[in-house]
């Protein structure tokens, strides 16, 4: 499937593969982003990978739209052939339920599952960080087991605690900062996802693989 290259204003362009949450497409996006990062091109500022599109920010004082487009076409051809770098795999300890994971029982009830089944299904597979966004360090991960798919809250909460593990649609995520949130809260991890002053400020990067491991409370 060939992506389209479209302008987003005068200083960004979008390489877009469609509107599906698809592992193959997403892997190509990370491969393209990594290839661009590994072959610096003057005027390209940065890229933002998402589910099915890569946004490329550029400086129009340095390069033209046509030059960036040609460069991206060339990299796209290489990305087809390039083997993607083996994803990092990160284990995330989770305490399911409790005060932070306050929706766990309601989720089980809504899905006609037991709490144990929800935990088993959620921690039972490895997820891909499709993209990051919403707040600094928030990973959009998927896909959930079909049995765990449910719509987001009708009314978002005004404050969700940092470290809270949540689900919505076919996705799961972790809130890196205290922030508003419309997802169902099912657990909490003690890991720090974002520390702006640390040498490596982010726990996750787009394209990472993530496994949740249940941590029984003492």
């Amino acid at each position: 499937m060939k992506p389209r290259i479209l302008p987003l204003g005068d200083s960004a362009m979008l390489v877009q593969w469609g509107n599906e949450m698809d592992f193959k497409v997403n892997r190509r996006i990370h491969a393209l982003a990594q290839l661009i990062e590994a072959s610096p091109f003057s005027g390209i500022v940065e890229t933002v990978p998402a589910y099915a599109a890569l946004l490329v920010h550029y400086d129009p004082l340095i390069v033209s739209f046509a030059q960036v487009k040609d460069f991206l076409r060339e990299k796209l051809a290489q990305a087809e052939a390039a083997a993607i770098r083996t994803p990092r795999r990160i284990e995330v300890p989770v305490r399911y339920g409790g005060e932070a994971g306050m929706d766990l029982e309601a989720v089980a009830h809504h899905l006609h599952l037991t709490v144990e089944e929800v935990i088993r299904l959620h921690s039972g597979r490895t997820y891909t960080v499709f993209m990051m966004g919403f707040t600094p360090g928030f990973p959009y991960m998927g896909k959930l087991d079909d049995a765990l798919v449910m719509p987001r809250l009708a009314t978002p909460r005004t404050c969700v605690r940092a470290g809270t593990v949540a689900i919505a649609g076919a996705q799961t995520g972790i809130y890196p900062l205290d922030s508003p949130g419309g997802w169902h809260l099912i657990g909490w991890t003690p890991l720090t996802l974002f520390d702006p002053r640390a040498e490596s400020p982010f726990l996750f990067a787009p394209g990472d693989e993530v496994k949740f491991v249940e941590e029984k409370s003492a």
């Binding site: 987003l8 979008l14 949450m21 998402a50 589910y51």
Partner: peptide, 11 residues
Amino acid sequence: ELLSEGMTMGA
């Protein structure tokens, strides 16, 4: 709605 994708000031 569409799948989330990158955006920028002015969009």
